[in-house]
């Protein structure tokens, strides 16, 4: 839990990128894991849940270990490299993720609002919670590539250049996708959850 207590921080500072091809992979990968696993897990768990996130973190680091000789610190930091591997692996769980967002669009906010003390249940707060719920519904409607760009930026705290490195797409594509998806969410989040609203009565 320590990593999530630190919140959605930007991860360890970029200094020396690790030499992953060194003679002592055990300690190198141990350090790499300590530096990045917590924030990567937090990111993945918010998308597909804790259990799948455990598996994905494990697979990500094993793929990284297998591909360590192709890791190029001059091209990309370790963080975008790892998030890129994880993003590929995450594609196998798209349906599960979408189901999760749809379910969340129906429940997030309502139960949490109950749990809050009456003083903080101001209109403003409830409006904000409704938005969170609406956003969850809208995320379900995004194309997986758009969702990756948005959430790697917003939750993974990757820069546009790092997102480009992670996903293997041109940085211009990151800019335009991010712009497009943000604009769409700004105008469609409420519309996209219309069904969920009705279902709740």
């Amino acid at each position: 839990m320590t990593a999530s207590a630190a919140g959605p921080g930007p991860g360890p500072p970029h200094g020396e990128e690790p030499d992953l091809s060194g003679p002592d992979p055990g300690s190198v990968f141990g350090r790499l894991f300590d530096d990045h696993a917590g924030s990567l897990h937090a990111y993945l768990a918010r998308r597909v849940g804790d259990q799948t996130a455990d598996d994905l973190v494990s697979e990500t680091f094993l793929v990284a270990l297998q591909q360590r000789h192709t890791y190029d610190a001059a091209r990309a930091g370790a963080r975008p490299w790892l998030y890129g591997i994880a993003s590929n692996l995450l594609r196998r769980h798209v349906r599960q993720e979408v189901r999760g967002w749809r379910a969340r669009a129906r429940v997030v906010g309502s139960d949490r609002a109950q749990a809050e003390s009456p003083e903080v249940r101001t209109t403003e707060r409830i409006t904000a919670q409704q938005r969170v719920r609406q956003l969850a519904g809208a995320l379900a409607a995004l194309e997986p590539g758009d969702r990756d760009v948005l959430l790697l930026t917003s939750w993974g705290h990757l820069s546009s250049t790092e997102v480009a490195q992670a996903l293997g797409i041109p940085v211009g594509t990151v800019y335009s996708r991010l712009h497009r998806v943000r604009r769409w969410l700004q105008s469609h989040s409420s519309v996209a959850t219309g069904g969920a609203e009705d279902g709740d009565g």
Partner: peptide, 14 residues
Amino acid sequence: HALTGLYLEIKTDQ
């Protein structure tokens, strides 16, 4: 705010 709110809503277990 909604993105951050959604992030914080989802508790995780590491």
